[in-house]
Design a protein around this nucleic acid. Sequence first.
DNA 1: CCTCTGATGTTGACACCAGCAACATTATAA
DNA 2: TTATAATGTTGCTGGTGTCAACATCAGAGG
Lengths: 202, 202
Amino acid sequence: MKRKPPYHHGNLKKALLGAAVKVIAKVGPRAFTLREVARLAKVSHNAPYRHFRDKEELLAAVAAEGFERLADSMIESSAPSSDALDALLLSGRGYVQFALRWPEHFSVMFDQHEGFDAYPEYAASGQRAFHVLVDRIVAAQQAGQLPAGDATPLALTAWSMVHGIAKLAISGLLPFDKEDAVLEFTAFATRALGEGLRNLTW
Amino acid sequence: MKRKPPYHHGNLKKALLGAAVKVIAKVGPRAFTLREVARLAKVSHNAPYRHFRDKEELLAAVAAEGFERLADSMIESSAPSSDALDALLLSGRGYVQFALRWPEHFSVMFDQHEGFDAYPEYAASGQRAFHVLVDRIVAAQQAGQLPAGDATPLALTAWSMVHGIAKLAISGLLPFDKEDAVLEFTAFATRALGEGLRNLTW
DNA sequence: CCTCTGATGTTGACACCAGCAACATTATAA
DNA sequence: TTATAATGTTGCTGGTGTCAACATCAGAGG
């Protein structure tokens, strides 16, 4: 059971997760090292193996936690709006904002081509984050601001849009220096896409 | 000089590049190993250092080569069209198609957050590929199919769209199995975005 | 209270990797 | 022809992921 209280050194699993996030933020997901995580948690280099099968599983856990935060960011960003379509665009803003603030975390979440299916926790959190987007879309549909019908293609399109912006911005490939500039660009792009999705004949 | 003909073992630099592409395609960019590349090129584990400062520089070279291929893919895909806007959308198709066919290559090109500025070759090929997109946009503008003005924001938006699709598709996060389905979705998304960009007031 | 068992953490080892240094070889220029 | 620089090799160091064996502690059954 995971619910059991402390152990030898307090509950290490959570500590390792936190340490992993810190290490990734410091040296990037590429140079991320299991031993460094152990060091930061003041534990021997093999202790993590009692909580994670291998390095990949720890990364998957970090990614899963990232999806939770991502969903939160989207929800927070879109909360202040009462207009459904506006809320959708703002949730896109939240998506990009999250990526800009925790770029390494974001990388871990999406640059792991393998092990998607292998880690149900990862898939579940991802689904939850995606669902925030779908909810916004359905709301906009019900408000008549987007064409009725299956929300999935609309959601996938919107997702692709903000995901592309996020990725390119993180990589430094967008010619914007400050976060605000990127977010303004995000507003422009998502607005354009929303306009197009509304008028599309299909 | 780099321009000098063969050497000891023929021109290794090119051989290493080819081997690197093969290794990446086999084990992925994550598990990519300099020594494995050397092995594949039938050369000692230190020979690559005579042609690349370190592992990262070899990866940068692979990425640069990838951008060339990407630009080609975009050009080829959009060639058959005579309509300017259509050509733009088709170049987006070429972008996604490239990503689907050489996903590891694509990863190397974009998952390297560092060393963009450090490798002029990389930056240059990237610029060239981006320019293909800009050209298509400008053509569409001149044909009156997109609003006149600075093409850059339009290009960045379009790029973000197809890049997001490509990334998500590679990661297996889009619910499409076959390449054709992804490309069809790409057509849908880019058409929507094109529609939106055309009508946007800004 | 005591023992025992399993969960948790540690030590030590292996194979592998990136990169450095010293050496060997060969192509080219003087 | 010979010297020099470019190219390739061998061997090493410090670091990594992971396995196996061992140590320690928490809590259950008595």
